[in-house]
Amino acid sequence: MKDPVNSSKKTSDKGGDRPLSGFFPRWMNINILAQDVGFFILGLIGASIVGWVIFPAVLYSKHPQPINFNHALHLDSEKVDGIEGETKAEKCLFCHAFRDDGTFVGIPKLESCTECHDDPESPLGETPEEKAFMTKYVANEEEIPWLVYSKQPDCVYFSHIAHVKMGNIDCATCHGDFADNEKLPLYVKNRLTGYSMNIWGKRISGFYWNKKFSDRMKMDDCARCHTEKGQEQNNACFVCHK
């Protein structure tokens, strides 16, 4: 099949009607260029839809936590007794504690929960979540398979004590403020890496105007903070990647 636009024979036939038609190369035909641009934009739009909408939707899956832990309730000293601490950070560290050797507990194990919730038969509150927690985990002495929002790859060595105790950084600075949180957010899991969306950040673009440290947890964010705090030496590779 012959392409009407590109067929040299046809254009030369019409040559007499259009001055300069012999001067401009044929591909500069305005109609043809308009078509090119149209399809180009079409591709551009398609790609943008794929890249900005479809891709994030496909990349991430949403998972609820095994039970809904109510941080706000536990930190409310009027309702819950026993979690001590002057400041919010101190209250965080009551459960998310440092061990004697300085290592960080992370999410507490069941045994921390059962210091108060010790009897599966008699819940301390009235919420269905607590009931589920008691019957499913406390009664069976089974650890809760929490999904950790801030879990980093194995090749990253992060020392909480260096940041919290030596660097005086508040928990919320990196993790966001969980203290008033009544419902645990969904765990948005990257299907490829298995890690939470919290690491890359909620914005798929990765760009923020006023980026907070709790927005993202990528290496650049670590480095930015180190730099801002005058700790550039800690940006050396082997400080974190052992």
């Binding site: 398609g46 790609a47 890249g51 891709f55």
Partner: peptide, 8 residues
């Protein structure tokens, strides 16, 4: 060209 301007 367009995909370069997306995070993909």
């Amino acid at each position: 060209a367009g995909i370069q301007a997306t995070p993909l």
